[in-house]
């Protein structure tokens, strides 16, 4: 079973994402802030991480920047962003993000993206 980390400090949204992805049959772990996300990603064997851009402790961008090379190579990184600005995306892309989903997104859109990536 593919393993996904969902990191978002906004608990309602996180629960929604978790429920959506669990329905699709993925194994999910959660993180409530950037630091927790970073620690979990380095420990566990994740196939994909969904990271909110704006999180306390560490932003999604900082999480990506702090990941070890090895982890980064073995994982797909999806960034949730309310800041749709080109600039932020560029920075995140350079840091190693693979996909973006702009908030607000529909759960269906999210499922489609995740299934596509992990297909």
């Amino acid at each position: 079973m593919k393993k996904i980390l969902v990191a978002d400090d906004e608990d309602i949204l996180r629960m929604l994402i978790v429920d959506t992805l669990e329905d699709l049959g993925f194994e999910i772990e959660e993180a409530e802030d950037g630091q927790e996300a970073l620690e979990k990603l380095e420990e566990g064997n994740f196939d994909l991480a969904i990271l909110d851009y704006m999180m306390p402790e560490k932003t999604g961008l900082e999480v990506i920047q702090s990941l070890s090379k090895e982890t980064k190579n073995n994982i797909q990184l999806v960034m949730l962003t309310a800041k749709a600005q080109e600039q932020d995306r560029q920075i995140a892309l350079n840091a190693g993000a693979d996909y973006f989903i702009a908030k607000p997104f529909s759960p269906t859109e999210l499922s489609a993206v995740v299934e596509e990536i992990l297909a």
């Binding site: 704006m54 309310a82 607000p104 997104f105």
Partner: peptide, 17 residues
């Protein structure tokens, strides 16, 4: 409001967003 905005659109509360 930032959190409300980010979440409400996704869960179909567009007025709130």
């Amino acid at each position: 409001f930032h959190n409300v905005k980010g979440t409400s659109g996704t869960i179909g509360m567009s007025e709130l967003k």
